[in-house]
């Protein structure tokens, strides 16, 4: 199973990288861009675990290590692998 995890800043937390990319896109003429959030993407391969169990385990991984929940929020999906 593959957990695809996105970690991004919570709203209200200053994201200077996102802001810089936002301005760069505007400079390139993409005037429709109203905001950019820059975050992290992780793929975690899991083995020997049911999808129900994985839901809880991945949440625990995010809370304990992969995200700093003071400043970041996370979301993830689980996909079967061969």
């Amino acid at each position: 199973m593959l957990a695809k995890i996105h970690v991004t800043f919570k709203s209200g937390v200053l994201d200077p990288q996102g802001k810089a990319v936002h301005h760069a896109l505007n400079d390139l003429g993409f005037n429709e861009v109203r905001g950019v959030t820059l975050g992290k993407y992780l793929e975690v391969r899991l083995d020997g675990i049911s999808e129900t169990e994985a839901q809880g385990r991945v949440r625990e991984m995010c809370d304990k290590l992969l995200a700093n929940t003071v400043i970041e929020s996370y979301r993830y999906t689980l996909e079967p692998t061969d």
């Binding site: 990288q17 810089a20 400043i71």
Partner: peptide, 8 residues
């Protein structure tokens, strides 16, 4: 928490 400096 500590974030990246405002200037990056």
């Amino acid at each position: 928490a500590l974030l990246n400096n405002r200037s990056q």
